[in-house]
Simulated scan of single mutants.
Amino acid sequence: MHVGAQRLFILVAGLWVGSILTVGYLVAPTIFGTLTDRQVAGMVAGSIFKVEAYLSTIVCIALMVLANLLVTRGLTQYRIIRLILLGMLLCSVAASFVFIPWMNTLRDQALLNGMPVMLSPSADLFGKLHGASSIVFMIQSALGIYLVWRLTKPNL
């Protein structure tokens, strides 16, 4: 039973971390490199990051539940995995419920006033939020890489 649960854990974690890295470091730059309208590119990328953040929150909670189950079944090496997942969960919750909604509100307010957010009075705040959310995303990415690295280590 432990081996099957561990393999499922590794598979889900690998796919999930792969999706985070793909969205952040392949899809988003491609969108901005392809679309000439930066406002449209930002809106498309923002929508994709929103879906990724919600998906990350759900998958992370599921993996934490599975990690807890594995720890209670004697696989104490999953204790450190739970801490990594907790860090990743904090990142995805911050993105899902703080950064993305706040940035979307600023963008929507600017559009209601007939201008892109980067030309609005909120441009400075939007830029700071974007920078902070990028840092949080990079932290989540690094934790994800470390998670997969730990999971693929023999004997964890």
Rank of each mutant, 00 (worst) to 15 (best):
A62T: 07
R79K: 12
W102G: 00
R79M: 04
I84G: 09
P121H: 11
C60D: 12
W102L: 08
I61Q: 13
P101G: 07
L129H: 00
F99L: 07
A67S: 09
A142E: 08
N113T: 13
L111C: 13
R150W: 11
M115I: 09
M103H: 05
L89D: 04
L66H: 04
L90N: 02
I58T: 14
I81G: 00
L55T: 15
S141P: 13
H130A: 06
Y146G: 08
S133C: 09
H130I: 01
L151K: 05
S120R: 06
S120G: 03
I100M: 09
M103G: 02
G87Q: 05
L70V: 04
P101F: 08
M64F: 06
M88H: 07
T72H: 07
H130W: 01
L129G: 00
L69G: 10
N68H: 11
P101A: 03
T72E: 11
R107V: 13
I135T: 13
A123L: 01
R107I: 15
C60Q: 14
W149Y: 10
S96C: 09
S96K: 15
T57D: 09
L63I: 09
L125A: 09
C60W: 15
S122R: 03
D108E: 09
K128T: 01
V98C: 03
L85N: 02
R79S: 01
L66F: 01
V71D: 10
G131H: 08
Y78R: 09
H130D: 01
H130L: 02
A67T: 15
P101T: 01
G74F: 08
L119H: 06
A110D: 06
D124L: 01
C91P: 10
I145K: 07
G114M: 02
D124G: 04
A95D: 12
L106R: 11
N68L: 04
S133V: 15
G144E: 10
M64I: 15
A95F: 12
L85S: 02
L70S: 05
R82F: 04
L147E: 14
M64W: 14
